[in-house]
Simulated scan of single mutants.
Amino acid sequence: MRLWRKALAVVAGAVLAGQAVFAGSASARSIELWVSTWGTDVNVRNSPTGGSVIWQIDAANYPYVCTTTGDRATYGSYTNIYWSKINFDRDGNGYYESVGWISDIFIRGGVNDRPARDPYILC
């Protein structure tokens, strides 16, 4: 019973940290979750509500942190109130150490007014 509680705590901690959990042969291990984006010069903001643009990204894969609701974003026929927190490589050193918010419009596989990731992690 004690081992089960410990395994559950590891899984819960990984989910809260935005990581997927895989059952290993002897113990649980985790990996980062990623999202695939589309578009060029996609604004990255410091907040999903009233946030300022802090960077722009192009179509690529980025480490995913979590999803929340925020300001309505519109791009052509696409519209969404969901925003995803991602890590991005701001200085080109190959490390995704910067954090910002992008509209779920620009995450591949999304639909209007729904979270693009399924399942998603609520911030």
Rank of each mutant, 00 (worst) to 15 (best):
K85Q: 13
N80S: 03
R5M: 10
N80C: 01
W38R: 04
A7L: 11
R2W: 13
D113N: 11
A14P: 01
A14H: 01
C66K: 15
N112S: 06
S98W: 12
S30T: 10
A60C: 11
N112I: 00
V15E: 07
V35G: 06
G18E: 11
W55V: 07
R90E: 12
V21T: 06
Y75V: 08
A28R: 08
A12Y: 07
Y75R: 07
R114V: 08
L122A: 14
V65K: 15
D71S: 08
S84W: 05
D91M: 10
Y64D: 04
C66W: 14
I107N: 05
D104E: 00
I81R: 04
A20K: 14
K85H: 14
K85E: 15
A17K: 13
T74S: 02
K85P: 09
F22A: 05
R108L: 13
G76P: 00
Y78D: 00
S36L: 03
K6N: 09
D58F: 04
S47N: 05
A9F: 15
E97L: 15
G18H: 10
D71C: 06
S103E: 01
W4V: 08
T69C: 05
E32C: 08
V53K: 07
S98Y: 15
K85M: 06
G50L: 06
I121C: 04
Y82V: 00
A73K: 03
N46Y: 08
T67E: 02
G110K: 02
R45Y: 06
T69E: 13
Y75M: 07
G50F: 12
P63T: 15
I121P: 00
N80T: 00
A28G: 03
A26S: 06
W34Q: 04
